[in-house]
Amino acid sequence: MSGVRAQLPLLLGVAPFGMAYGAYAIESGLSAGLAQAMSAIVFGGASQFIGVQLIASGVPGAMLVLATLLVNLRHLLYSASLAPHVDHLSARWRWLLAYLLTDEAYATSMQRYRRDDASPHKHWFFFGAGFALWVTWQLTTSLGIFLGAALPDSWSLDFALPLTFLALLMPVLTSRPALAASVVAGLVAAVGFDWPYGIALVLAIGAGLAAGVALDRALGGGAEERAFDVEVS
């Protein structure tokens, strides 16, 4: 339950984003069933937006799958960084948590795992956070599909997602290497905005990580242990 509670402020950003996705999918000509199924099966906001965009422009299915792979490659890093914390869990638990692993669930769970207490039940926190997000995403997708074009663009609901990410970003900028990683990744992503299939995002993250590691080494390392001390509430 504490995981659900920790996730609540993030849901404020995710809910409008889910509605924006649902409305966007319908406007782009997807059927309601297809739009909802994408939320349930893919469960990844950025890749779903790109997916809808590519479907609407008639890109072949194989390219769509490749684009999804590239855009969601960052989850590989989440998966790797959470792995040590779920080592003791059964395979069933790990399969379940992997399905719920999103940007937001990762951010909140990492905060919990970084706290010093040795509670063996932190995976329940992860589950609570991930599940709350999942339910919200499915419901708001439906709402967006249902309301569709009735949601005026001027409400700019999609703006809630970058805002949520800003709130997650500021507290992790605790050192110069972290700042360098962030700035380099942002610039590469901005420069490559027009490049196809989410390639820019992958390159940007790679460049950002490289910049962070390089500067960390140059400064003697060890500056980053507090990188995940975020206060969400």
Binding site: L77, D103, Y106, S182, G208
Partner: peptide
């Protein structure tokens, strides 16, 4: 550095 890079 995953979080700062991805988010920005």
């Amino acid at each position: 550095f995953v979080m700062p890079a991805v988010l920005f």
